[in-house]
């Protein structure tokens, strides 16, 4: 393979990484919004969130991508830049899977914790933010890590729409060289390396978060801080920025 072709592959890697980051952020936002909505006390909110999950989990990611690329522009007049169309389709689909993770982790928090929040006179929003989520989030990391790898694998689908990601560049190289074995092997290896790095990063994150709620073998001294000073730090940080 010539250096020009490698450059093409590197560009593909960059597009894949961009798409991965954006759609992961969207998927995370959707997961939390829908997952938390599924624990809402009004049945209508729970029902709507459940419908969202069933619809977006029920359909295939590739069908969703086709829909966003071909139907949205015609039906609603929204012509999206390919990167955003891909982000939207992947984020909404994988967000639906993620919402199940959030719901499950929230449901797994000891009910006594929630009751404790009620006894202390916390509002439902405070209970969620200060009691349930800090305990549920560390438990979500391992399934989210798996989902992130699934999302990485899902980003390959946008190549079908002609977006220049890693898989697409592999197809171009195949056409240029008229041979497939080498380039596809390389591309598979690159995907595997990215997945491996992601898994490692998530494992590190899990360790840190679990340490924050006193679940790791090595207890951290910051436990006495509690959530309240943390939010104050966050607010002052926002003020500086």
């Amino acid at each position: 393979m010539t250096s020009g072709l490698w450059e093409l592959v590197l560009k593909g890697v960059w597009t894949t990484v961009q798409l991965l980051v954006f759609s992961a952020l969207l998927a995370a936002a959707v997961s939390f919004a829908v997952g938390i909505a599924r624990t809402h006390r009004m049945w209508a909110v729970r029902f709507l969130a459940g419908v969202y999950t069933e619809v977006f989990r029920g359909t295939s990611a590739l069908v969703m991508i086709f829909w966003v690329f071909f139907v949205l522009p015609v039906a609603f007049g929204w012509q999206l830049v390919p990167l955003w169309a891909g982000t939207l389709a992947l984020g909404l689909t994988y967000g639906a899977y993620g919402s199940e993770i959030v719901r499950g982790a929230l449901a797994a928090v000891d009910p006594a914790q929630r009751e404790g929040g009620v006894a202390l006179g916390f509002s439902s929003w405070q209970r969620l933010r200060l009691v349930s989520l800090p305990q549920a989030v560390p438990e979500m990391i391992p399934p989210f890590s798996n989902l992130l790898v699934e999302l990485l694998k899902g980003t390959a689908l946008v190549s079908v729409m002609g977006m220049g990601d890693l898989t697409f560049s592999a197809n171009l190289v195949r056409l240029a060289l008229q041979q497939s074995a080498e380039i596809y092997t390389w591309v598979l290896v690159i995907y595997f390396v990215i997945a491996f790095v992601l898994t490692r990063l998530m494992r590190g994150l899990e360790k840190r978060l679990k340490a924050g709620v006193g679940k790791s073998a090595v207890p951290e001294p910051v436990r006495t801080d509690g959530p309240a000073p943390k939010t104050r730090v966050g607010v002052s940080g926002g003020g500086v920025a």
Binding site: V149, L152, K153, G154, T155, A156, L157, S159, V160, T167, A170, N171, R174, S180, A181, Y184, T185, V187, L188, Y191, F192, A195, F196
Partner: peptide, 15 residues
């Protein structure tokens, strides 16, 4: 398990 099915399809189909 950690690589996209799409690329595996291409691999099998062309290689």
């Amino acid at each position: 398990r950690n690589t996209p099915l799409l690329v595996q399809l291409f691999f099998l189909f062309y290689v």
